Computed example of a mutant assay.
Amino acid sequence: MKYSQPVPGYRSYRQNGGSTAVFDETSKTWSANTPHGVPQTMYKPKPYDAATNPNGYRGTLEDRLRDPGRGTELR
Rank of each mutant, 00 (worst) to 15 (best):
R66E: 13
L61D: 03
P39C: 14
L65C: 08
G9K: 08
R58G: 00
V22I: 15
T41Y: 10
Q40M: 12
G37R: 13
Y3D: 02
R64V: 14
K2Y: 15
M42I: 11
N16M: 08
N16K: 14
H36F: 06
P68L: 09
N53S: 09
V38D: 11
R11H: 12
L61W: 09
P47W: 10
H36M: 12
T29W: 07
P45N: 02
A32D: 00
M1F: 05
Y57I: 10
Y3G: 01
L74R: 01
Y43A: 09
Y57E: 00
Y3A: 02
G9R: 05
V7W: 04
E25W: 15
L61I: 14
L61A: 03
L65R: 02
P39L: 15
Y10L: 15
G18Q: 03
A32Q: 04
S27Q: 11
L74M: 02
D67N: 11
T26G: 05
T20S: 01
Y3F: 14
S12N: 03
N33Q: 11
Y43P: 01
D49T: 14
T29C: 06
T60D: 00
Q5V: 10
G17Q: 10
R75W: 04
T26E: 09
S4Q: 14
L61Y: 06
P45K: 00
K44C: 09
D49M: 08
P68S: 08
Y10E: 12
Q5D: 00
R11A: 07
K28I: 12
P8K: 15
D49V: 10
N16W: 08
A50L: 13
P6Q: 01
K2T: 11
Q40N: 00
T41D: 03
K44R: 15
G56T: 10
P54T: 11
G71Q: 12
G69S: 12
K44I: 09
G71T: 09
R11E: 04
E73C: 04
S12A: 12
V22F: 01
G37E: 03
G59D: 01
Q40T: 15
K2Q: 05
W30D: 00
Y57C: 09
Y13G: 02
A32I: 15
